[in-house]
Amino acid sequence: MKAAVDVRQISKSFKGLQALKEATLEVRPSEIFGLVGPDGAGKTTLFRILVSLLLPDGGSATILGHDTQKDYKMIRRITGYMPGRFSLYHDLTVSENLSFFASIFGTTVRENYHLIRDIYGPLEPFAHRQAGKLSGGMKQKLALSCALIHNPSLLVLDEPTTGVDAVSRKEFWEMLAVRRAEGITILVSTPYMDEAALCDRVALIQNGRIMGIDHPDGLVKAFPWPLYAVASEMMYPLPGHLKEFHLTRSAYRFGDRIHLALREDDPESVESFLRSKGHTKISLSSCKPGIEDCFMELMVNGQH
């Protein structure tokens, strides 16, 4: 299958700081591809290069076969871009913003309303409110509507759910799943590791370097160590004690448990070690790693 987005060896530096180091990835048509990593990882830089707002120092990229540098006019026509910062006009109303974006792409709201009906619908009662006076969740819906109104083939969403509460995040991802089912390709970045599970494929990125690309399940299966969820009645010192144990690869807090990765699968000796440290009511059960476990392992380990 031909790639919807093809990124080859893209590098970019800003004043000596290397933001991207030979990033390579492919996004397939009609998939949700997630770029997952913390602030400063290089996500925004890569997106700005893809949507033709920034030139790379090296490497090349195409969207649906169009080169992001040579064919930049075409790139802008076929992509819908939602930047990380709210980029609509604060002093225009909700409906004025939408009409504006439709008209600069040579279309009308009426012509493409079917593309945004379910997203824009809840905003209709506020159509005459200034965009700057909307709540966070509504701004996000309006920005997505504006990015979709010209019927793009590729949607590029830079951290659409950052700073948004758990409920609105869930709703946003449900909206993305609908768009994908309609055939649009979605490239989305997020600092929330748990959102990786909602993508068809993900790239984990840190310090400008792509550490791994796979299906979420594939990334999880590649986690190289036996993993346990540990708890005791003394949760505060537990990670510190576990790190002292000689077979411990890593010990991180995960909600009300500690995730313990072992170099050798020997849970009995962990328990006796913890008892020697004074822990009681020790609970130790095998557990499945999540994307966050994988991300931290890759951060410490480099690539598998």
Binding site: G37, P38, D39, A41, T162, P191, R253, F295, M299
Partner: peptide, 10 residues
């Protein structure tokens, strides 16, 4: 802790 990597967050 918004936006930081998972190790720094911990």
């Amino acid at each position: 802790t918004g936006g930081v990597d998972p190790i720094t967050r911990r």
